[in-house]
């Protein structure tokens, strides 16, 4: 067992990648649970893709500086998130259609910008990430995302939960009128921060994977929101470590390996998890079925 884990002890780049991945899994867990409960998984994915043009333009101008690329990614990600909803309403498009137009446009512009760099920008790195080459700035950003998310979500947990589960009650409950909108803003701000922090490790195409996939898997393991968050964090960490090892031993692209392992965890959870999985539902039916005499 220890032998399988030895790359984390033998190679510094593996240890750094594991540290960054664990931090991002911790940051993504509560955010993912709320995104899934709010049925906004695809919106999160769209915002993840939307970081590309800003990242590409900033990398082009700065020669690939991690900090500048991060700022560029944050700018376009936030811009698409803030404008896609209102623009959809103004154009009378369904909101998901508006997000699709915006993120495809962002992706296309990003790819064009990156290819205009004449080799200065590594398009593969922007699209698929480079978790094994995570530098100090990206690692620090991942740790900051984990800490700030933990603090922010603790502060807004109660109003965000009520607003997510029953928004009309939140508005008419007689509680503080500002609490719901403030909780939402904090939540989306933390989501933007974590998505941008994940971008260096997993790239624009899969950056939201570490937030969404463990949250989807966690619903098969826990019934209450706090336990779901703990399960998502655990599953996220497991997926990251497994993905890094798969990548190390099979020489597979690291972002794809991590996301594949997370998808594997979702499938396994949906089959054998104790809550509403295929197995638990069939066991429940079997126990209720009349016994043959």
């Amino acid at each position: 067992m220890i032998g399988v884990l030895s790359p984390f002890f033998d190679y510094e780049f593996m240890a750094r990648a594991a540290m960054g991945g664990v931090a991002l899994a911790l940051a993504g867990a509560p955010l993912g649970i709320f995104l899934v409960m709010r049925r906004m998984s695809l919106v999160g994915d769209a915002v993840g893709h939307a970081v590309l043009p800003g990242a590409a333009a900033a990398a082009l101008m700065s020669g690939g500086s991690t900090l500048i690329t991060t700022i560029g990614a944050a700018l376009t990600g936030t811009m698409v998130f803030m404008t896609a909803g209102p623009a959809s309403r103004a154009l009378r498009l369904p909101e998901d259609a508006g997000f699709a137009v915006f993120y495809l446009a962002a992706l296309a512009i990003g790819v064009m910008l990156a290819s205009m760099g004449g080799g200065v920008i590594d398009l593969d790195k922007l699209l698929f990430g480079a978790a094994l080459a995570i530098d100090n700035t990206a690692l620090t950003l991942a740790c900051i995302a984990a800490i700030v998310t933990a603090i922010g979500m603790t502060l807004v947990y109660r109003p965000l939960l009520i607003d997510t589960l029953d928004p009309k009650f939140m508005r008419a409950s007689g509680g503080a009128k500002w609490a719901g909108p403030v909780a939402q803003s904090v939540f989306f701000g933390l989501l933007a921060l974590t998505t941008v922090a994940s971008f260096h490790a997993l790239g624009a195409l899969m950056s939201i994977g570490l937030t969404i996939l463990p949250a989807i898997a966690a619903r098969f393991w826990a019934k209450s929101v706090p336990l779901m968050i703990v399960s998502a964090a655990g599953l996220g960490i497991l997926g990251v470590l497994a993905g890094l090892l798969v990548s190390f031993h099979l020489a597979a692209p690291v972002g794809a390996a991590i996301v594949s392992c997370l998808v594997g965890l979702v499938l396994a959870s949906s089959l054998v998890g104790p809550n509403q999985s295929l197995l638990s539902r069939n066991l429940g039916k079997a126990s209720l079925a009349p016994r043959a005499s």
């Binding site: 997510t164 029953d166 009650f169 019934k223 929101v225």
Partner: peptide, 11 residues
């Protein structure tokens, strides 16, 4: 029509 989500993970 209460806005409580039908799959809300609440007791």
């Amino acid at each position: 029509s209460p806005s409580l989500r039908p799959d809300a993970p609440l007791t």
